[in-house]
């Protein structure tokens, strides 16, 4: 057969970016925090993480193959692995394995595949799984094991978030004195889910993603700034509310802001929309944390704003070229 030329419309070159590069890029960004959580929580963390990732990949494979009956399998595009990782980060390290598998089934099965697979889901699958577990198994989901490196005596088992809520409920600012210092929290010496422990390493990964242009700064910065301002105001008004830095470095805020809220599929498309989304998540998080029934509000805030994403996309268009005629730059 003779050598046929190929014809197509332009462009004829591609920037060699790919879904895999982005997905595995996020996974790499999560690595430092992953290793840290293994150090902090020991073997339990390894088990939880492995179960979560393997279960997610398995369900993705099984559903594509046997239920959707698609020929092309998508387990290697990295999205299921990432979902598994993020789900694992949202779980305590002593969770029974069957609960993890249930969470993975919900995350992949309900959160992702029912909508049609990658790119179609409305809610972040990992968060859907976590919220499902949090509501179904509140006790198991909030009983933490000791952080092996924990230096805070006497309060093992009570996370900073629980302390913060306790202070508000009892109207007693002195409860907050039991909180670890914000530096400790920043470095990762507190209680919590696996991904909640080290803000420093998570931010390091976030910087990596920004450098690799996997994400833009809009969502993480808007969330963190909003929380800082809102929590700061509350703290100034009434000292029963914790100091803003402690609020930011506690719980899953950094994990949520940098890795979960920035999920491509479920976040708005335009920068303006992303800022609105971020600010709303920040506000909702503080509201739920301080006055809600659950100590942690991040996952709920993101899930709620996921639902608003299509609406934001409809109303927040990027600034069109020529819309604002700029002042003359040249004479």
């Amino acid at each position: 057969m003779e050598n046929k030329l190929i014809v197509s419309l332009s462009p004829h070159v591609h920037g060699s970016d790919s879904v895999e590069k982005n997905m595995y890029g996020v996974c790499i960004a999560l690595l430092p925090a992953l290793i840290a959580s293994f150090c902090f929580f020991g073997l339990g963390a390894v088990t939880v993480m492995l179960t979560s990732v393997l279960a997610c990949v398995f369900f993705e494979w099984a559903i594509t193959k046997f239920i959707l009956k698609r020929d092309k399998l998508t387990i290697l595009d990295g999205s299921a692995i990432l979902t598994g990782l993020l789900l694992g980060f949202n779980l305590p390290s002593n969770l029974p394995i069957w609960i993890i598998i249930l969470g993975a089934l919900f995350a992949i099965g309900v959160g992702k595949m029912t909508f049609g697979g990658l790119g179609q889901n409305i809610f972040n699958p990992a968060l859907a799984g976590r919220v499902f577990l949090l509501i179904s198994f509140p006790v198991q989901m909030t009983s933490w094991t000791d952080n092996v490196l924990d230096h805070v005596d006497g309060y093992s088992g009570a996370t900073p978030l629980a302390l913060m809520q306790k202070a508000i409920l009892e109207k007693d600012p002195s409860v907050l004195n039991n909180l670890p210092s914000s530096l400790d929290m920043f470095l990762g010496q507190t209680e919590g889910s696996m991904g909640e422990v080290s803000a420093l390493l998570l931010l390091l990964g976030c910087a990596f993603m920004l450098w690799k242009k996997i994400i833009t700064w809009h969502i993480p910065v808007s969330i963190i700034l909003t929380v800082f301002v809102f929590a700061g105001l509350l703290h100034l008004l009434d000292p029963v509310y914790a100091a803003p830095l402690q609020v930011i470095f506690s719980g899953g805020l950094i994990l949520g802001a940098c890795y979960m809220a920035t999920d491509y599929v479920t976040s708005p498309m335009s920068h303006k929309g992303q800022l609105i989304y971020g600010v709303a998540i920040g506000l909702l998080t503080v509201v739920i944390r301080n006055w809600g029934a659950y100590p942690e509000g991040m996952s709920f805030a993101i899930i709620i704003m996921n639902a608003f994403t299509p609406l934001i996309n409809t109303y927040c268009k990027p600034k069109r070229f020529g819309e604002v005629v700029r002042k003359e730059a040249a004479k």
Binding site: S267, M269, S270, K317, P318
Partner: peptide, 21 residues
């Protein structure tokens, strides 16, 4: 390369010199 599903990463929005979607 073979097209994959859109993951709504918004990179096209960021790249468009005319500010389109």
């Amino acid at each position: 390369s073979e097209p994959q599903p859109c993951i709504r990463c918004a990179k096209c929005v960021g790249a468009c010199p005319m500010g389109l979607e």
